[in-house]
Design a protein around this nucleic acid. Structure first.
Lengths: 354, 354
DNA sequence: TTGTATGCGTTATCAA
DNA sequence: TTGATAACGCATACAA
């Protein structure tokens, strides 16, 4: 792997100055003959511009970072899938950070913004701490936060409306006649966990249903732990007739446990997931799920960032993506979905609006 | 967003030279008093090293690129999930490229290696053209290819063994008494498509089964098109009793179509997928699937690249990851899996070895 | 139209 | 132990 040619190498070979080489390479007005000589030399040498040197000079890297909690979480991947092509189309490379939901890692990412290896950052933090806010205020490059930040934070912000999302699901279950509706939530010290918990309580109140602590279980956002939480809930409230799960992975865990317990879905227990990931459509019975618009949020975030990178200064903007209930067999199928062929097809595609 | 402080700013403030500042920042031997002054100034100014300038000087970016065909494909995401932490632990950032299976884009990525914005590249090309090989030979940074390259190509290479993988699946189906085993494949001009097609034919021959063109359908690697291919196959061979699908998405499409056609799985038709993605475990009936070790291949590729980045020169290495058949309900469940609760659980976790 | 010289922010060499 | 200075590869103001 020999050292690559630089504009100096080309200049020598073409018998011109490096300034002329640079001009030709950048398409600035130059005499035809010089252009020819430079292009020929560049070609023969297999010259490729050094991106690092360009960046140092231009103060732009044409890179953007996307920081999320977990590369394994389909909700983040849905964002990624939308972010990637938007950035690519605009000529930006994507640097991926997975913070494993470790706050210190998120702070690290914000700190590293100062190193100027990217022109901007899209971040989807699980929790927003005071330190986050401090660093955001001091950030030396544009940042877009996916998730909710406190009022008045001067940062571009794309948020989901999980409150309305939970409401859609609970109303749906209520309309189906369910009255003992459980909640299987993630940790309350996460932004989504807290929001979903509060929204659940509020929705019940508005519907005139009692709030029963035994109907609420907390696990984490994964399948196995979600299953355990459901087992516990079943133990305390054997006649629960519906489960609102804080994400699809938890809901899959719920399906596992309900099946093992001999409960029919949705006959005995209706199940709603959240995030409407690929898994929802693949599972059986197909999972009704509240989409919080991960894909749309990713796209919106990418566009906000690009606008900021290209347009320059403007007031921070807040974009809220409305949730959407996608009804499938786990709530709207035949009483024992396990007995019916084709139920998933019938239900799939029906979508309730906000 | 004011201009950030540089070592010059610090030097002025601390009343020392930039050389001293650099020394302190890099922990080189320096007088205590100087260290103190520099650190104080750096602290007050909120100094952060400029990564671009460092890279220009050091000729290392501490970035590695991963180029794959499709951010939406779970097999690549499985690789990504393993690659990311390995690189992160070694202090490398991950730059993500999605080429949308466009060959020109892959060539672009190889070309852009010359820009030196990354120290190395992991690439998983769908097809390896002559141009790929040319550019690999001329690459100015280490590359690891996930996928098969021609014998003698001087490049680190991690390959799956889809031939053995297909063989495992066909043998399994044969052992279950299936004799009319169909193949739902992806395009034959892709490396995996060609390999799987050939392996299927070979496996049948070895088992003494006739090769029937009507039993082989070609679509692409996605769910809807896979379903269409299965519908066509059903039309031609109504009594097909097993389907080998070239990936899990195709297999999900197969489940859709079989269910709609009133076929029982695995009673009437046993179905095997490939790649063993998350979807396989989530689907119903849970999908038997041949894991080609996407995760392991990703990990191996990252380790090969790191070794090359850190260790330096050595002969190119070829790592072959063995396939593994994961048996679930879609082949080993009760005749009509749709009628049985808990079948997925019973089958899950049973794994046949190579 | 072209070349010289300077700076982008670091690191590293060489004298002092 | 420290400071002046030269790269790293490129872009550009200015002079020729």
């Amino acid at each position: 792997m020999a050292d690559g040619p630089t504009i100096n190498t080309i200049a020598e070979r073409a018998g011109v100055s490096i300034a002329s080489v640079s001009r030709v390479l950048n398409g600035l007005p130059t005499r035809q003959e010089t252009v020819r000589k430079v292009m020929a030399a560049a070609d023969e040498l297999g010259y490729v511009r050094n991106a690092v040197a360009r960046s140092l000079k231009s103060r732009r890297t044409h890179q953007v970072a996307f920081a999320m909690a977990d590369v394994g979480n389909p909700a983040y991947l849905a964002m990624l899938r939308e972010i990637q092509p938007v950035l690519k189309a605009a000529g930006y490379r994507l640097v991926l950070h997975s913070t494993d939901a470790v706050v210190a890692d998120e702070i690290d990412v914000l700190h590293s913004l100062g190193e100027r290896y990217v022109d901007g950052l899209i971040m989807s933090p699980l929790r927003v701490t005071g330190q986050h806010l401090e660093m955001l205020a001091a950030a030396r490059a544009p940042v877009v936060i996916i998730g909710s930040v406190p009022e008045g934070t001067r940062v571009d912000n794309v948020r989901a409306d999980s409150r309305t999302g939970v409401r859609l699901a609970i109303d749906h279950l209520y309309a189906l006649g369910r009255r003992r509706i459980g909640l299987v939530n993630g940790p309350l010290d996460t932004v989504p966990g807290a929001a979903r918990g509060a929204a659940y309580r509020e929705a019940l109140t508005d519907l005139g249903l009692p709030y029963d602590e035994d109907l609420v279980r907390i696990g984490d956002f994964y399948r196995a732990e979600g299953g355990r939480a459901v087992a516990e809930l079943l133990d305390r409230v054997p006649d629960v007739d519906a489960l609102m799960c804080a994400n699809d992975l938890i809901a899959l865990g719920a399906l596992d446990v309900l099946r093992a317990a001999g409960k029919r879905v949705p006959g005995d227990v209706a199940v709603v997931g959240m995030d409407d990931t690929d898994l929802a459509a693949a599972s059986w019975p197909a999972l009704s799920s509240v989409s919080l618009g991960s894909a749309e949020r990713g796209k919106a975030a990418a566009e906000l960032l690009l606008d900021r990178l290209q347009g320059g200064d403007r007031e921070p903007r807040v974009v809220t993506v409305p949730p959407r209930l996608v009804v499938r067999a786990s709530t709207a199928g035949p009483p024992d979905a396990a007995a019916g062929h084709g139920s998933a097809e019938r239900a799939e595609g029906r979508e309730g609006g906000a």
